[in-house]
C-alpha cells in the first residue's frame, strides 16, 4: 500500500488490546486517519478514550501488556509496524518527535536539561559552543527565564509547567518532521500557553513540520488545528475540519463536549452551567456490541444497541459515526455559523 504524496502519516484500521489481570481491554478498535504534510491534526476525546495509546502505537512505545492486533501505520512509504527496533530508533526523535503527556516519566531524571538537549543534537556537526547557543535559544523560545543557569538543573527542580516546556524544548531540538504533541499545554497559564502555541504554529508554518496534537482544550484546538478527530472508547466517532466541527457537530458526544464548556463574564452566548455528559465510558473489557456511546446518548434507539454505526461522510471531509446524525442537523457547537 502506498501513501499519497501529500500524506506524511496514514493509520489504517489500527486495533490494540491491553491484557490486565486476565482481562482483555479493547483500547483501540479500528482507528483510521491520515495527516497531510504541513498540517496540524487534532485529537480530542474523553479521558481514557485512547488518544495517548494511539500516539504511542505510532512509535511503538507501548507498555509490555499491549498488543497491536490489526492495522497498518505508514510514515511516508514506511510501514512502521514492520520496522525492526533498530530502524525504528532512527525514526524516533529525528523523523517523528514526541512531546509526552507526562514529562516526569519521559525525561531522564539523572541528566541535566542541558545534557538532554545536547543528546538530541548529537548527530549535528555543531561545536559544543554552538550547541550551547542552540540550547539557550530554544529554552528562551519556550519561555524559561535565565536559561544559562537553568540548563544545569534536573527535571525535579522545575515547576510543573517548566517540566512541560523542557519536554517541548528537548523534543524540538531533535528537529522532527512529524511532531506528536500529547497535551503539551495542560500545565501552562494563558500567557505561556500563547507563547507555546505561537512557537508550534511557527514550527509548522516556517519549517513545514506536521503536527499531531492531542488536547482536551478546545480553545487550543481552535488556534492550532486544521482538522480534528473526536475519539470515544477506542473509536474515532467524528472527524472534520476544525471550523466545521465547531460550528456543526454531528455526533452527540461531540455536541455534549461542547455544551460542557463554562462561559466567561464577557461571553454572553455561552451557558452558565458546566454540564457534564451523564454516565461514564464503558468498560473496555466489555464494550457494547452496538454503538459505544449508546448508554449515554439522548438520541439512541434500538438500532444503536444492536449495530455499530459506520463512519459516514455527511458532507465533504466531514465524517460521523452515528445512525441518527441527521437529528443534530441545525445544531451549532462552540460557534454560531449562521453567517456561514
Amino acid at each position: 500500500m502506498n501513501t499519497a504524496k501529500d500524506t506524511i502519516l496514514k493509520v489504517d484500521n489500527l486495533k490494540l488490546q491491553f491484557s490486565s489481570n486476565g482481562q482483555t481491554l479493547n483500547a483501540l478498535n479500528g482507528i483510521s486517519f491520515s495527516i497531510r504534510r504541513g498540517e496540524t491534526f487534532g485529537f480530542v476525546g474523553e479521558s481514557g478514550c485512547g488518544k495517548s495509546t494511539t500516539s504511542r502505537a505510532i512509535l511503538r512505545l507501548l507498555a509490555d501488556n499491549a498488543k497491536i492486533t490489526d492495522g497498518t501505520i505508514y510514515y511516508n512509504e514506511t510501514d512502521l509496524l514492520k520496522l525492526s527496533e533498530k530502524d525504528l530508533r532512527k525514526i524516533r526523535g529525528k523523523e517523528i518527535g514526541m512531546i509526552f503527556q507526562d514529562p516526569m516519566t519521559a525525561l531522564n531524571p539523572v541528566l541535566t536539561i542541558r545534557k538532554q538537549i545536547f543528546e538530541q543534537l548529537r548527530d549535528t556537526k555543531l561545536s559544543s559552543k554552538e550547541k550551547e547557543i542552540v540550547a539557550i535559544e530554544i529554552m528562551n523560545k519556550v519561555g524559561i527565564p535565565l536559561p544559562e543557569k537553568r540548563l544545569n538543573e534536573y527535571i525535579f527542580q522545575y515547576s510543573g509547567g517548566m517540566r512541560q516546556r523542557a519536554m517541548i524544548a528537548i523534543t524540538l531540538a531533535g528537529n522532527p518532521k512529524l511532531l506528536i504533541a500529547d497535551e503539551p499545554t495542560t500545565a501552562l497559564d494563558v500567557t505561556i500557553q500563547d507563547q507555546i502555541i505561537k512557537l508550534l504554529n511557527h514550527v509548522k508554518e516556517d519549517f513545514g513540520v506536521s503536527i499531531l496534537l492531542i488536547t482536551h482544550d478546545l480553545g487550543v484546538v481552535g488556534r492550532m488545528c486544521d482538522r480534528v478527530a473526536v475519539m470515544y472508547a477506542g473509536y474515532i466517532v467524528e472527524m472534520a475540519d476544525t471550523y466545521t466541527l465547531f460550528s456543526a457537530p454531528r455526533h452527540p458526544y461531540t455536541k455534549g463536549l461542547m455544551d460542557a464548556l463554562p462561559k466567561l463574564p464577557q461571553e454572553q452566548t455561552r451557558n452558565e452551567e458546566m454540564k457534564p455528559i451523564p454516565g461514564a465510558l464503558p468498560s473496555l473489557s466489555d464494550l457494547p456490541q452496538g454503538c459505544p456511546f449508546v448508554s449515554r446518548c439522548q438520541l439512541h434507539q434500538t438500532l444503536c444497541q444492536d449495530q455499530l454505526p459506520t463512519m459516514q461522510e455527511i458532507s465533504p471531509g466531514h465524517f460521523a459515526r452515528c445512525h441518527y446524525f441527521h437529528k443534530l442537523e441545525g445544531c451549532t457547537g462552540l460557534i454560531n455559523c449562521t453567517k456561514g
Binding site: 500567557t191 481552535g222 471550523y243 466567561l264
Partner: peptide, 27 residues
C-alpha cells in the same frame, strides 16, 4: 492575564496580547 483569555472561535486565530518583556527569574 484576563485580557489574554483565548477565544474558542477558530476564526480568531489572531494572537492574544501577551505580556511585554521577559519573565524575570525567581532567582
Amino acid at each position: 492575564l484576563l485580557d489574554s483569555l483565548p477565544s474558542v472561535d477558530p476564526r480568531k486565530k489572531s494572537s492574544v496580547p501577551a505580556i511585554e518583556g521577559n519573565l524575570p527569574s525567581p532567582i
